[in-house]
Deep mutational scan, measured.
Amino acid sequence: EPELVFKVRVRTKDGRELEIEVSAEDLEKLLEALPDIEEVEIEEVEP
């Protein structure tokens, strides 16, 4: 069974934007590691 992958769009407080694809596990780590995120948009990517 393929692992869930999420497309994550992040905007930081200083206005930088970042778009990455991460696994569910990595997404959890990412959110814990970035306390200064202003906006996060997450969508599931079809395998």
Rank of each mutant, 00 (worst) to 15 (best):
P35S: 14
L4F: 10
E21S: 08
E41Y: 14
E17R: 11
R11K: 08
D14W: 08
P35Q: 14
L4N: 04
R9D: 00
P2Q: 08
E25S: 13
V5T: 08
V5M: 13
D14I: 02
E39N: 09
E39R: 12
V10Y: 15
T12M: 15
D36W: 08
V5G: 03
F6Y: 10
K13Y: 04
E25C: 10
R9H: 03
K13Q: 05
V22G: 04
P47Y: 10
V5K: 12
E44D: 06
P35Y: 14
E28N: 09
R16W: 11
P2S: 07
L31K: 03
P47A: 09
V22T: 03
L31C: 11
I37E: 04
E44G: 09
D36N: 09
E39D: 09
K29M: 07
E19P: 00
A24W: 13
K13S: 06
E21G: 02
E1G: 12
V5F: 11
L34P: 01
E39C: 12
I20G: 01
L27I: 05
E41P: 02
S23W: 09
E19R: 13
E25V: 10
S23H: 07
L18S: 03
F6P: 00
E46N: 12
K29G: 05
E28W: 15
I37D: 06
E1Y: 12
I20S: 01
I37N: 06
P47R: 13
L31P: 01
V40M: 11
P47W: 08
T12P: 00
E19T: 14
R11V: 06
E38R: 06
E41G: 04
R16I: 07
S23P: 05
E19F: 15
K13L: 08
G15A: 01
D14F: 07
D26S: 06
A24I: 08
S23D: 04
L30S: 02
S23K: 10
E3W: 09
E43G: 07
L27E: 00
V5H: 09
E43H: 11
E1N: 13
V22Q: 00
G15H: 02
V10D: 00
T12H: 06
G15I: 00
E44V: 14
V22C: 11
L34W: 12
E41S: 11
L18T: 04
E39Y: 14
A33G: 09
E41V: 12
V45Y: 08
E43Y: 14
D36L: 05
P35T: 14
E17M: 14
E41T: 13
I20A: 03
P35R: 15
E43V: 13
K7M: 06
L18G: 01
D36T: 04
A24E: 05
E3G: 10
E39F: 15
V22Y: 02
F6D: 00
I42P: 02
L30H: 02
E3T: 11
